[in-house]
Computed example of a mutant assay.
Amino acid sequence: MSEGTKEPDGGEEKVVLKTHDGQEFTVDMATANRSGTLKNLLSEVGGSSDNPQVIPLPSSITSPVLGKVVEYCQRHAGGGGGTGGVQALEQFDEELVELDKDMLLDVTYAAAFLDVPRLLDLTSQAVADAIKKMSVEEVRHYFGVVSDFTEEEEKVIRSECPWAFE
């Protein structure tokens, strides 16, 4: 199965991505092949336009999150040569990462799980930009991390490595 392969009836090969909450997203192979995970999986199992392969996704990838990933992959499947070209894709990318914190982190996780490197880079950079001027406590709060250190242990670490808490 290769990108752009037509089925005998002339239809484009499709794949169905099914989220844990039951939503199904039918995507063409050019879109699915933006994901290394899906590309590898589909090269093993195949599919067709009449009977597309249904791929269940983990519970952490909800339908709103998958919707963002699919939208990204569809826009980028053509390589930027479509309507508006590269500038339109850059604008789309900028707008795509203007998400609330939870959605941004969920899309980042989904991009990592589905192996969509450019989307992972894009969302990771947005997260990095969001936390770069935060204090250690603010970063912990942002990611929901609870300190494993006792108050005394943290004081020792702060005195030994004050640069880490600036």
Rank of each mutant, 00 (worst) to 15 (best):
P58N: 09
E24V: 09
R140D: 00
V15C: 07
T37I: 04
K132N: 03
A110T: 01
D21Q: 08
L114S: 03
A110S: 05
C161D: 04
E152N: 07
G47V: 02
F143V: 05
E152I: 06
G36A: 04
E137I: 00
E12N: 15
L66G: 04
M134I: 03
R140S: 03
E12P: 01
T150Y: 05
V45S: 10
S124K: 08
Y109E: 04
S43R: 09
G78Y: 00
N51C: 08
E44R: 14
Q87K: 15
S147C: 12
D102P: 00
G85H: 10
H20W: 11
I61C: 07
V127F: 09
H141G: 03
V136F: 11
V54W: 11
I131V: 15
G4Y: 08
E160I: 04
S124L: 01
F25L: 01
A77E: 04
D28M: 09
N33Y: 15
E95S: 13
A126C: 04
L96V: 06
Q91K: 15
P162F: 01
V156A: 12
A130V: 08
Y109A: 09
K39R: 14
S43K: 15
D21M: 11
D9G: 07
L99Q: 14
D93Y: 08
N51K: 15
D9C: 13
T123K: 07
E137D: 15
E7W: 15
I131T: 13
P58K: 09
E152Q: 13
V15G: 05
L96K: 05
V69L: 08
A88S: 13
K132M: 01
A111D: 00
Q23H: 13
K155E: 09
K68H: 13
E7M: 10
R158G: 02
D115H: 07
G22A: 11
D129H: 05
T5M: 08
E94D: 14
L41D: 02
D100W: 07
L119C: 09
P56Y: 06
F165I: 07
L114D: 01
G78K: 07
M103I: 09
Q125A: 10
Q23M: 10
N40A: 11
Y142R: 08
G36W: 06
H141Q: 13
V156N: 09
K101R: 15
L57Y: 03
F113P: 11
M134N: 05
K133Y: 05
K39Y: 04
D115T: 02
